[in-house]
Design a protein around this nucleic acid. Structure first.
Lengths: 112, 112
DNA sequence: TTTAATGTTCGATGGTTAGCGAAATATAGA
DNA sequence: TCTATATTTCGCTAACCATCGAACATTAAA
């Protein structure tokens, strides 16, 4: 992976609110059991997406537990998508989103 | 480690030039053999800090191989320090810099 | 078909950042 | 002490970013 790709990924994770959104998706929305390092991160009481395997209504759920406007949250989702960290699709009224495992792998390999 | 610390680290690595500087220090200046993932990153011909274990004159060397003003590079060093990624000290006229292993460890643990 | 809910897009605003050159500071050596 | 070299700080500018509310688009349900 090119250096510029890495900087794009890190830029997406450089905003604390956006990182929080990403962590919620990563940890709770996609059924991935957070490994060490993630468990330590405090998201606060507002953690919301506890449905394992349930990526439905990710957007709404995150809206409900964050103190940001919907438009801002929509923007953050876009940024996470642009960085290749997540993919989102709309099925009817369900906003379905996935973690992009390939990108996660690249991050893991970044410093060995 | 707090979420805000992680976003600060990622912010420091979100600028491509700064990431490049960090990678040079990480890979070449501190005698750390880059693991997989780093080896793949192309820094271009300008890679300069080939002296293993030699962290001396890191600033000057990096200035020589990057197309940025010295003041800008100084600024980037400061940012890397603020994020806790590196520490720098001046010994006489030698600018000595180290990787902060603790922070590296945190990054590695971030996604498991 | 109206209504309610869910997301997106737009334009504005205030704050932050990357970059430069010039001036300042620090150190080593002549 | 003077000079050359190395690094930092300062002041500036242009670009970028986070955020909002309003307006719009889409879909489900009443």
């Amino acid at each position: 992976m090119e250096l510029s790709n890495y900087s794009r990924i890190f830029k997406a994770l450089s905003n604390e609110q956006r990182l929080k959104i990403f962590m919620m998706i990563y940890r709770d929305c996609c059924g991935i059991k957070g490994p060490k390092g993630i468990a330590e991160i405090k998201l606060g009481d507002e953690s919301c997406c506890g449905v394992k395997g349930g990526i439905e209504k990710a957007f709404s759920k995150i809206c409900d537990c964050m103190d940001l406007s919907r438009s801002t949250i929509s923007h953050h989702f876009k940024e996470l998508q642009n960085a290749g960290l997540i993919t989102c699709e709309r099925e009817g009224q369900t906003f379905r989103c996935h973690i992009n495992e390939k990108t996660i792998k690249s991050i893991r390999e970044f410093l060995g």
